[in-house]
Simulated scan of single mutants.
Amino acid sequence: MISGPLTIVLDAHDPARLARFWADLLGREVVDDALVPGDETQIGLRFVASESEREGLDRLHLHLTSAVEADQQRTVERALALGAHHLDVGQLPEEPHIVLADPEGNAFCVIPAGNKFLAGCGFLGEASCDGTRAVGLFWSAALGWPLVWDDNEETAVQSPAGGTKVSWGGPPVAPKTGRNRQRLEFTVDDPADLDRLVALGATRLADDTLADPDGNEFHVHVAG
């Protein structure tokens, strides 16, 4: 089973800069140069150096929540001051969320107060992923996290302790082109867990890298 926080790994041209941006925005600290650690209820973010250019659509983006009405604008203003910019992904003017991108173009949404789905999830409320229902079921079993949403091919899982949800939007799923720039990462206590993940439908790509049933790469580290 998963040991410690779930983390999202993001490719970056300047990992230290992106780590500082997200640590300042989330109110966390940077450790080990480019890790913004999570905890029992909030996922962490880790930035790794990559020279590859962004191609196609990202398969994962983050949702930041608002406790009261004024929080949304405060978060947007803070993000812009730290180096974010507005991003047009085809959202409609009447949609209440605000789409931004971090200094290297990673999209994230600032959600207004009153969103029932993200109530009680904390500031980093959701990692929203492109993926099938089957992959949502895989991740529920892989992480040992309960399935907290399963409707019309959309799924979401959440730690038993609560906090950040990880969701998959169902079809249509965009074609995968090359290695994902954002990938999940976690630690397990027992090497046998790698075999368990394969039995659940993962594919072994390298010593610590597997792919879920949709082909999305993820990293598994064995403690010890």
Rank of each mutant, 00 (worst) to 15 (best):
L184K: 11
L82C: 05
V148P: 03
V198A: 15
D130P: 11
S66C: 02
V110W: 05
V99K: 07
F123V: 01
S167G: 04
G105L: 03
A16I: 10
L143Y: 01
N216R: 15
E95D: 06
D58F: 02
G120R: 06
L26G: 00
S52E: 11
P175Q: 04
E104W: 03
T164N: 10
A211V: 11
I43E: 09
P37N: 07
V135L: 09
R59N: 10
D207R: 14
L10G: 00
T132L: 11
E217L: 14
S50C: 09
G56W: 07
E217F: 14
A81I: 02
C109F: 11
L10P: 02
N180Q: 13
L82V: 00
A206I: 10
G201V: 07
G163M: 03
A70H: 11
A79Q: 00
R54K: 07
K176W: 04
E29L: 15
D71H: 12
A192Q: 14
G114P: 06
L26Y: 01
E217C: 11
V36H: 10
K116G: 03
S167T: 09
R28C: 08
R78I: 00
V68N: 09
D151N: 13
P172T: 03
D58T: 00
D71N: 09
P213K: 12
F117Q: 09
D32W: 01
L45Q: 12
L124P: 08
H219S: 06
G122A: 09
T155D: 14
H97F: 15
L80R: 03
R179N: 08
H85E: 08
E217P: 07
L80M: 07
R54W: 06
R133I: 08
V166F: 02
E95V: 05
T177F: 04
L26D: 09
L25E: 03
E29D: 14
I43W: 13
N180I: 11
D71W: 03
T41N: 10
L197T: 02
L194Y: 08
L92E: 15
H61N: 06
A16C: 04
D58Q: 05
E40A: 15
A16M: 01
P171N: 15
V222W: 01
D189P: 02
D33W: 10
S52A: 13
T164C: 08
S167E: 13
S159V: 12
L100T: 02
T209M: 11
A67F: 00
Q158R: 14
R28N: 04
A202F: 10
G56Y: 07
P103A: 03
D102C: 02
R46F: 03
N152F: 14
D33E: 15
T7N: 08
E69I: 06
N216F: 15
A16F: 10
Q182A: 15
K176L: 04
T7F: 01
A142Q: 00
